[in-house]
Amino acid sequence: MRRDRAADAADGHPVLRLRERSGQRDVEACVGVLASVHKADGYPADWPPQPGEWLEGSGGLGAWVAELDGRVVGHVGLSRPGAGDEAPGLWGGDAGPGGAGVVSRLFVGPDARGHGIGALLMGRVVREARARGLHPVLDVVSSDTAAAALYERLDWRLLGIVEQEWEPGRRVTLHCYAAPAAPAASGDPG
Rank of each mutant, 00 (worst) to 15 (best):
R17N: 13
G60V: 07
E67I: 03
V73Q: 04
G96S: 12
L61A: 08
P81E: 04
P110K: 07
G109D: 12
R71P: 07
A45W: 09
G118D: 04
G12F: 08
G23N: 04
S79Q: 11
W54M: 12
S58Q: 13
P49T: 14
L78F: 02
V73F: 02
V72E: 13
D111K: 07
W47N: 03
P97A: 08
A45G: 11
D11W: 11
L90F: 01
G52R: 08
G98D: 07
E67Y: 00
P44I: 08
E67W: 00
G93Y: 02
A119H: 12
D41K: 10
V108R: 01
E53C: 06
G82E: 05
S36K: 14
G89K: 08
G42V: 09
D94F: 07
G114K: 05
H75R: 04
W91K: 05
R105H: 14
L16Q: 13
A40Y: 11
D94Q: 11
R113C: 12
G62N: 11
G109P: 07
G118A: 14
G60K: 02
A112W: 01
E20L: 06
G57I: 00
H75A: 08
A66D: 06
R105K: 15
C30E: 11
A29V: 09
H38N: 12
G101A: 13
G84Q: 01
V72Q: 14
G101W: 10
E20D: 10
P88F: 01
A112E: 05
H13K: 10
R80Q: 13
R17P: 08
L34D: 08
W47C: 04
G116I: 14
P81K: 01
G116Q: 09
W47K: 03
W54Y: 14
D94I: 10
P14D: 04
L55H: 03
G116D: 07
L68C: 12
A66V: 10
A40E: 15
S104C: 08
G32S: 09
D85H: 11
